[in-house]
Amino acid sequence: MDLSLLAFGSGWGDALARGLLVTLALAAASVVLGTALGLGGALVATSRRRTAARLVGGYEVVMRSLPELLVIFAVYYGFSFALQALLAPFGVDGFVAIDAFWAGVLAIGMVHGAYCSEVFRGAFAAVPAGPLEAAAALGLRPLPTFVTVKLPLALRFALPGLMNLVVVTLKATPLVAAVGLEDLLRVAGDAGKNTKHYLTFYLAALAVYLVLAAAIWLVEGRIERRASKFLGA
């Protein structure tokens, strides 16, 4: 194994670092969007608005059933074709550039959100009735009850599942290479094709993904310990 291939400056180090940055930014943005979508989805799905709950539930089943790659293609090419069709009457003839990065964030975020919603629903269901009854007895209105009692408790139950999904989504980011985004794994693959030293570059990528996942688990463990201190279990 020739480690000089991974060097910065003369080797592929800079290219790999740029790829890592894309991977991190993509994962972070997708997780933020997906968690927000998931929380919103869980709230609607557990609400008394039957029709809305069914619609959201159906949408999430679809999102969880489709291959992520297909969702990425649908967002990237689908939006692009739709926008072109929409803009054609206004004399705009050409490629309406949908940024591969944001198309990826939207697609992966939507899938992440569909899984997240399940985690939140489970967490809401796990919140014991006692604290909620206490809040009602104190005369707390629904919104303060939710924000100060139900959500904080639910988050503690949701945390392991949410962090699990963060790792799943991190691992889904290489799929966005299919629409031209140069993430860590894509750069490693290109470097392998160019130099024929596949093993070197794929092992380097493997090490980086392992370190990233380990960091996520480390953070998860810390937050969980901190959070459960106050649970008084």
């Binding site: 939006f79 926008l83 929409l86 003839d93 490629f95 309406v96 550039a97 949908i98 940024d99």
Partner: peptide, 19 residues
């Protein structure tokens, strides 16, 4: 190039004219 802006039709992002 924010696709959401584009979807709202508020701006026309990177259009390459094939003409």
């Amino acid at each position: 190039i924010c696709m959401i802006v584009a979807a709202l039709g508020a701006s026309l992002p990177g259009v390459s004219h094939a003409a």
